[in-house]
Protein backbone atom coordinates (compact mmCIF):
# COMPACT_ATOMS: atom_id res chain seq x y z
CA UNK A 1 0.00 0.00 0.00
CA UNK A 2 1.02 3.58 -0.52
CA UNK A 3 2.74 5.75 2.00
CA UNK A 4 0.38 8.37 3.36
CA UNK A 5 1.00 11.50 5.37
CA UNK A 6 -1.34 10.58 8.22
CA UNK A 7 -2.47 7.00 8.03
CA UNK A 8 -0.45 3.79 8.17
CA UNK A 9 -2.37 0.69 7.14
CA UNK A 10 0.24 -1.91 8.07
CA UNK A 11 -1.80 -3.10 11.10
CA UNK A 12 -4.86 -3.38 8.91
CA UNK A 13 -2.74 -5.31 6.37
CA UNK A 14 -1.50 -7.66 9.08
CA UNK A 15 -4.94 -8.29 10.49
CA UNK A 16 -6.50 -8.92 7.10
CA UNK A 17 -3.71 -11.35 6.33
CA UNK A 18 -3.24 -10.21 2.73
CA UNK A 19 -6.92 -10.83 1.97
CA UNK A 20 -8.03 -8.04 -0.39
CA UNK A 21 -11.71 -8.57 0.32
CA UNK A 22 -11.14 -8.26 4.01
CA UNK A 23 -9.03 -5.13 3.53
CA UNK A 24 -11.90 -3.66 1.53
CA UNK A 25 -14.41 -4.45 4.23
CA UNK A 26 -12.21 -2.99 6.93
CA UNK A 27 -11.55 0.18 4.93
CA UNK A 28 -15.26 0.56 4.24
CA UNK A 29 -15.89 0.31 7.94
CA UNK A 30 -13.23 2.93 8.68
CA UNK A 31 -14.75 5.25 6.12
CA UNK A 32 -18.27 5.03 7.48
CA UNK A 33 -18.56 3.97 11.10
CA UNK A 34 -16.20 6.36 12.95
CA UNK A 35 -17.95 9.42 11.47
CA UNK A 36 -21.14 8.53 13.28
CA UNK A 37 -19.24 7.71 16.45
CA UNK A 38 -17.37 11.03 16.47
CA UNK A 39 -20.66 12.91 15.90
CA UNK A 40 -22.06 11.03 18.86
CA UNK A 41 -19.00 11.95 20.92
CA UNK A 42 -19.45 15.65 20.07
CA UNK A 43 -23.06 15.53 21.17
CA UNK A 44 -22.30 13.65 24.39
CA UNK A 45 -19.46 16.03 25.24
CA UNK A 46 -21.79 19.01 24.80
CA UNK A 47 -24.29 17.33 27.10
CA UNK A 48 -21.50 16.41 29.53
CA UNK A 49 -22.83 12.86 29.44
CA UNK A 50 -19.53 11.43 30.51
CA UNK A 51 -20.67 7.87 31.08
CA UNK A 52 -21.90 7.34 27.56
CA UNK A 53 -19.03 9.29 26.06
CA UNK A 54 -16.66 7.03 27.96
CA UNK A 55 -18.29 3.94 26.42
CA UNK A 56 -18.05 5.29 22.87
CA UNK A 57 -14.45 6.40 23.26
CA UNK A 58 -13.51 3.08 24.78
CA UNK A 59 -15.09 1.23 21.89
CA UNK A 60 -13.08 3.34 19.43
CA UNK A 61 -9.87 2.27 21.16
CA UNK A 62 -9.86 -1.04 19.34
CA UNK A 63 -11.07 0.44 16.02
CA UNK A 64 -8.67 3.35 15.53
CA UNK A 65 -5.44 1.29 15.45
CA UNK A 66 -6.57 0.10 12.00
CA UNK A 67 -6.32 3.71 10.73
CA UNK A 68 -2.70 3.77 11.84
CA UNK A 69 -2.86 7.49 12.69
CA UNK A 70 -1.00 7.59 15.95
CA UNK A 71 -2.06 11.09 16.99
CA UNK A 72 -5.69 10.12 16.44
CA UNK A 73 -5.33 6.89 18.42
CA UNK A 74 -3.51 8.59 21.28
CA UNK A 75 -5.96 11.50 21.51
CA UNK A 76 -8.85 9.07 21.76
CA UNK A 77 -6.96 7.16 24.45
CA UNK A 78 -6.62 10.43 26.41
CA UNK A 79 -10.40 10.92 26.29
CA UNK A 80 -10.93 7.36 27.48
CA UNK A 81 -8.35 7.68 30.25
CA UNK A 82 -9.58 11.09 31.43
CA UNK A 83 -13.13 9.85 31.72
CA UNK A 84 -12.26 6.55 33.41
CA UNK A 85 -10.16 8.35 35.98
CA UNK A 86 -12.51 11.34 36.29
CA UNK A 87 -13.98 10.52 39.69
CA UNK A 88 -10.67 9.86 41.37
CA UNK A 89 -8.57 12.47 39.63
CA UNK A 90 -9.59 15.45 41.78
CA UNK A 91 -9.95 17.55 38.64
CA UNK A 92 -12.96 19.87 38.64
CA UNK A 93 -15.94 19.12 36.44
CA UNK A 94 -15.38 22.38 34.59
CA UNK A 95 -11.81 21.46 33.68
CA UNK A 96 -12.93 17.96 32.66
CA UNK A 97 -15.59 19.48 30.41
CA UNK A 98 -13.13 21.83 28.75
CA UNK A 99 -10.43 19.20 28.33
CA UNK A 100 -12.71 16.49 27.02
CA UNK A 101 -14.50 18.82 24.64
CA UNK A 102 -11.16 19.96 23.25
CA UNK A 103 -9.99 16.37 22.85
CA UNK A 104 -13.21 15.34 21.13
CA UNK A 105 -12.82 18.25 18.71
CA UNK A 106 -9.24 17.15 18.06
CA UNK A 107 -10.12 13.51 17.29
CA UNK A 108 -12.87 14.69 14.95
CA UNK A 109 -10.44 16.99 13.13
CA UNK A 110 -7.77 14.32 12.93
CA UNK A 111 -10.23 11.82 11.58
CA UNK A 112 -11.29 14.40 8.98
CA UNK A 113 -7.64 14.60 7.91
CA UNK A 114 -7.40 10.82 7.67
CA UNK A 115 -10.58 10.42 5.64
CA UNK A 116 -9.21 11.41 2.19
CA UNK A 117 -6.28 9.07 2.64
CA UNK A 118 -8.56 6.22 3.72
CA UNK A 119 -10.72 6.92 0.69
CA UNK A 120 -7.64 6.88 -1.53
CA UNK A 121 -6.54 3.55 -0.09
CA UNK A 122 -10.00 2.15 -0.71
CA UNK A 123 -10.00 3.40 -4.30
CA UNK A 124 -6.57 1.93 -4.95
CA UNK A 125 -7.75 -1.39 -3.66
CA UNK A 126 -10.62 -1.41 -6.10
CA UNK A 127 -8.43 -0.17 -9.01
CA UNK A 128 -4.98 -1.52 -8.30
CA UNK A 129 -3.54 -0.50 -11.68
Amino acid sequence: MENYKHIDLSYLELMSDGDADMKGILLDMLLTEPSGEFDKMQKLAAEQNWDELKQVSHKMKSTLPYVGFEELTETNKKIDKTLWERQNSGISEETIAQTVSALVNTVTELYTKALPELQDARNNLMNPV
Binding site: M15, D19, M22, I25, L26, M29, K59, S62
Partner: peptide
Protein backbone atom coordinates in the same frame (compact mmCIF):
# COMPACT_ATOMS: atom_id res chain seq x y z
CA UNK B 1 -18.06 -8.77 20.89
CA UNK B 2 -20.07 -5.80 19.63
CA UNK B 3 -17.34 -4.09 17.63
CA UNK B 4 -17.74 -5.13 14.00
CA UNK B 5 -14.08 -4.74 13.13
CA UNK B 6 -13.04 -6.84 16.10
CA UNK B 7 -15.58 -9.47 15.15
CA UNK B 8 -14.27 -9.60 11.63
CA UNK B 9 -10.60 -9.72 12.49
CA UNK B 10 -10.93 -12.17 15.36
CA UNK B 11 -12.95 -14.57 13.26
CA UNK B 12 -10.50 -14.22 10.39
CA UNK B 13 -7.43 -14.85 12.55
CA UNK B 14 -8.90 -17.84 14.33
CA UNK B 15 -10.48 -19.49 11.32
CA UNK B 16 -7.41 -19.15 9.15
Amino acid sequence: EDNKMNQLVTRKQLER
